[in-house]
Amino acid sequence: MQKTLHINPDKCTGCLQCEMACSFENYATFTPSKSRIKVFDFHHTGRKVPYTCTQCDEAWCLHACPVEAITIDQMTGAKVVSESTCVGCKVCTIACPFGTVNYVQETGKVQKCDLCGGDPACATACPTGAITYVDANWTGLSKMQAWADKLGNQPGAA
């Protein structure tokens, strides 16, 4: 069964534990600027929204790469950058419609979410359940459950 990162912005408080966990996993430092997941704070509405790669099936980044540095992890479905192959041409950062592949000056390579090999650190670190790692076929499950609960509470439904 493939799993996917599932994001519920309503639950995000903007604590950035996810960004720290991501950078710690990949660089062994707490460095939000190197995180592959970013939380956006829309202060006029009070909304906080975590955003990262959704691992598109039609992976434009992968197709755009001239040196085949991006491959598919068959276990997780993640599109993974091979640092040793990447030449830092940044074409994938242009090809990605969502901006979730980004260049890292310090390494001269690009980086993107690789689902931490199947145990995403951001989801583990999230204290509110705004970021979870769930069955890829059932990202709607918790929403359905909430509505189902409403239906179940209708008086006199027979």
């Binding site: 408080t13 903007g14 604590c15 950035l16 534990q17 720290m20 509405t45 009070g46 909304r47 906080k48 204290p127 509110t128």
Partner: peptide, 13 residues
């Protein structure tokens, strides 16, 4: 009240 909000690194919010 619109929402609660955390400071950096805060799991209380």
């Amino acid at each position: 009240l619109v929402t609660n909000q955390a400071c950096f690194g805060c799991t209380i919010a």
